Simulated scan of single mutants.
Amino acid sequence: MKGAWWQAAARTPDGGRRAQALARQTQLTKPLGALGRLEQLAVTLAGLQGRSQPAVERIWIAIFAADHGIAEEGISAYPQEVTGQMLANFAQGGAAISVLARHLGAELELLELGLVHEVGPLPGVRQLKIAAGTANFLRQPAMTSVQCAHALLAGREAVLRSLEKRADLFIGGDMGIGNTSSACALACLLLDQPVNRLVGAGTGMKGGGLQHKTRVIEAALKLHRPYIDSPLEALTRVGGLEIAALAGAYIAAAQEGIAALVDGYICSAAALCALRMNPGVAPWLFYSHRSAEPCHQALLDALDAEPLVALEMRLGEASGAAVAVPLLQSACRLHNEMATFQEAAVSVSLR
């Protein structure tokens, strides 16, 4: 789609602020490199935020929820009603991400993009209702081009709202029964890999269930591959509304100049799609954790990403990203608050 907003250039990180931060790291009262990746994180954030003292205090978490037509094929251990039920749980404060957001003092935004089973109005939930879930991509494209564009825009608008609140960091999360099948199919197309190398258990499919899931995705890719001529077309044909929204959010974050912390498997599939749609996104993304899903490592390799933690998590809903936030906060506080050799009157360099 020529001239679409997601093709506009991403911002360039502030090289001057990054250089200043790097110089400060050489003057702090520690051997150079002694804080490992925490030093790199602080320097990178300084360049992205364009300030000598980077900060991760105001955090915006947007959870995108949507259903998947591919669930009709029995590729999940849970029924689709769970998507709406979990969205209600988020709103009521009982989900993992609800707990973690409270702990971080983060703003938690909930967006319903399209459910099969109506849940009615929920306090604090933006109900966009782009579609009643995606179509079954074993039979037809998951989305129309218009639906995909609306989902991408939903992600962009979430980023713009975070900037209105002067957020330091944007985090996107997902909820949608069947979305590991969509993410796997999308990854297979973007990475040109066979399904049996990337498919995973998702909500717990094992044995014959996992074999069935593999066959379904293989058949779907056979249907769609002849028509795939761009990352956007791949997203439209086998993606999900929430995956498209995440991709749109990552692109918008880079365009608007706010760092984004990517969650696990689903979010990484969206991130790779975002980078393929707009390569300038790459410097603006941090990667929080390595999922237990087998496909995630392949996505991380393609993204040239080294996640902050590896805790064998596979919950989604931005929980892994939320767990990793204190590492970014520690990096900033150490960078900003440690004394320099001169300030501490340390005459012997530890370098």
Rank of each mutant, 00 (worst) to 15 (best):
N136L: 12
K129H: 13
R276S: 09
L261A: 03
R18W: 14
L48V: 02
G200N: 06
T144V: 09
M338C: 12
V325C: 03
L138W: 10
V346Y: 11
A8N: 09
A151L: 11
F64R: 02
A10G: 14
V199A: 14
Q140H: 04
S182Q: 10
R51K: 08
M175Q: 05
N278E: 00
L110W: 06
S145Y: 05
A23V: 08
Q193L: 10
A187M: 07
P13Y: 11
V116E: 15
A269E: 10
T134S: 15
L35D: 01
R58C: 00
G84W: 13
I75E: 00
T83A: 12
D174N: 09
L32C: 05
I251Y: 03
L198R: 02
E317W: 00
L210T: 08
H335T: 07
L334C: 13
S319P: 06
A298G: 07
L210K: 05
E118D: 14
R314H: 12
G50D: 00
Q25D: 07
L303M: 11
T340M: 12
W6N: 01
L315Q: 07
L186F: 03
S291L: 11
T44F: 04
G264F: 04
R37H: 07
G69K: 15
M86K: 08
V43Q: 04
L100S: 05
A135H: 06
T340R: 02
V99H: 04
L87N: 10
N196E: 10
G207D: 08
L246Y: 01
A274K: 07
G36Q: 08
L169E: 00
M175P: 10
A19V: 09
H335R: 03
R58I: 02
W60E: 09
G176L: 06
L169A: 06
E112Q: 06
M1R: 14
L138S: 15
V99G: 04
A269W: 04
L246G: 02
C148S: 09
A55N: 07
L246T: 03
V199K: 09
S288N: 08
V116L: 15
I171L: 15
T236G: 03
L28T: 09
H212D: 11
H150L: 08
I171M: 05
T203V: 11
L285D: 00
L232Y: 15
C188N: 14
V99R: 05
L160D: 01
A269K: 04
G114Q: 04
